[in-house]
Design a binder for these strands. Sequence first.
DNA 1: CTGATCGCCGATCAAAAAGGTCGCACTCAC
DNA 2: GTGAGTGCGACCTTTTTGATCGGCGATCAG
Lengths: 158, 158
Amino acid sequence: MLKLSKKADYGLMALQYIASVQYGDVARARIVNTKEIAEEYHIPLELLAKVLQTLAKQGIVESQNGPKGGYLLARHAKHITIAQVLEAIEGPLGIADCYHDKDSSACLQREHCNIRTPLLKVQSSIYQLLNSMTVEDMMGGTPLITVQSITTAEGVAR
Amino acid sequence: MLKLSKKADYGLMALQYIASVQYGDVARARIVNTKEIAEEYHIPLELLAKVLQTLAKQGIVESQNGPKGGYLLARHAKHITIAQVLEAIEGPLGIADCYHDKDSSACLQREHCNIRTPLLKVQSSIYQLLNSMTVEDMMGGTPLITVQSITTAEGVAR
DNA sequence: CTGATCGCCGATCAAAAAGGTCGCACTCAC
DNA sequence: GTGAGTGCGACCTTTTTGATCGGCGATCAG
């Protein structure tokens, strides 16, 4: 339940990797290609390629063709949120369809729907949470995170 | 993305309905059967039945067979959290498999996984959010729901 | 110019999950 | 005891996801 898809996982891993190569060591900053990432994380090459293409099309990363080509972050890691990445890969995120559907005919339960309001609150909180965390946060020097950090997260949503 | 399944939706709606029949008007408290709920919300009867069966097996509701049979909440609505319901219907909730997998062999990326820690934090936050909201919270006196009620909804959980 | 190396795009296929349906088994009212 | 009204469990169909293949265009080194 609420599980991320493989594509989303791969996308996040790739972005984290690209970011750390780009920012990690100033002297060795370089462009990174799909094959390198795929081998590093044992991800099927073609699938990762497709994910990166999608991210490129959505303006999250920039691609460079030819030999010595590869990918770069389109903007600073600090300004790429998890929510943006997930939406780029898997479309608009919402706990239920009825919060962004164009045709209202979709939901037969809508007229008497009793869970719409409470769920909307949940959705907002999750979205806010995902939107408050960036790619930069993923690479930061936070090696270990304990259960107690929930408190921190709670503060975020309010 | 992060969308709830139909079964989860149906389950939550049904619980809300059962709860309001059970607690709403003390004089008219009664047992409620699957058919009634299915018709009220235009849900496929058999599917809703299966969801309720699952909830019964997980101890969220109690079933009563025979004519005049139906379902009752197994405990007070105040003590049934959204997280419990979702987990009962769709299995353990986790943003990625690797947080509750028995066999560590599943995740090939695990050794070099760089997004594990940050995602764990996200997951904890979401879990806590879902676990802090109960069925009782869902039945509160919000009869009609407009788009503007987002503000109201936000207030509900506090 | 030419070849090697890359990203780009579309089509295809298999596996898994979700959604929905069917017949059987139990229970209670009469 | 009987049958209508239940819950119950196995089953099938559709959709989504994950993964793979083949060909194309761009770019750079030599």
